[in-house]
Write a protein that binds this DNA or RNA. Structure first.
Lengths: 112, 112
DNA sequence: AAAGTATATGCGCATATGCGTATATACTTG
DNA sequence: CAAGTATATACGCATATGCGCATATACTTT
């Protein structure tokens, strides 16, 4: 039954996994930080304000689904965006943000 | 520090939330089932093979972020895709699937 | 109004995930 | 080889989420 779908089970889980990887603010921050070029972990830690351990963990997650790629240079590991669809993807979601923002704006007081 | 990002905290969380909603196989199934037109809950239950309760809950989730919209018709509630970006979004992710599929095929070959 | 159909929701459990802390690994330099 | 720097990982806890089950709600029909 479930075999007759455009996407089989396996594919669905992979797509879901992919979305799940993008479903974390910190990982989105990392992706954003890499939009303007590759960076090493220390730079990413600084750019995102996260802890080194946490940033590293999220980088592994992004690496695991090939959203990012990395390159070692001496002591440092330099990450970059590997999936060409990621910018478009984020653009699509962020594009539809305006409505959501105005809709949910009420929930957040303009603290700053 | 974290203030200088293209997307502020608030926006990041909304985007992340949006991705999270798409990060469930059953919800992707529901979205897929609605690609060829609106359907009521019973039809969606049949199309996805899920339980009524579970399907309903996932529909509420999709409704909550305006990916779906609904319309009542007598006893039935008829859902439809509301966000015009969803098809493109899925297309983008599914497009990059081929590589992931071939890559992860190995993982599924063994009993895991 | 009572019974029936269609849909939504509360509850509890099992599991997944994020994150802090500490530690391990990799490489470089003195 | 010891010390130092950069990155990755193991562990544990707190929380979030999916799902089955039972039940509630909404509307229709008799």
């Amino acid at each position: 039954m479930a075999r007759s779908f455009p996407l089989h089970e396996q594919a669905l889980e992979i797509v879901a996994r992919r979305f799940a990887v993008l479903a974390e603010p910190m990982r989105l921050r990392l992706i954003q930080a890499l939009f303007d070029g590759e960076k090493n972990v220390t730079e990413l830690v600084a750019a995102t304000g996260g802890s080194q351990a946490n940033v590293s963990r999220h980088l592994q997650t992004l690496l695991g689904v090939d959203i990012l790629a990395r390159r070692k240079e001496g002591l440092q590991v330099i990450y970059r965006i590997n999936d060409p669809n990621i910018p478009k993807l984020c653009q699509l979601v962020c594009g539809g943000l305006e409505k959501s923002l105005s809709k949910q704006a009420a929930h957040f007081a303009p603290a700053d």
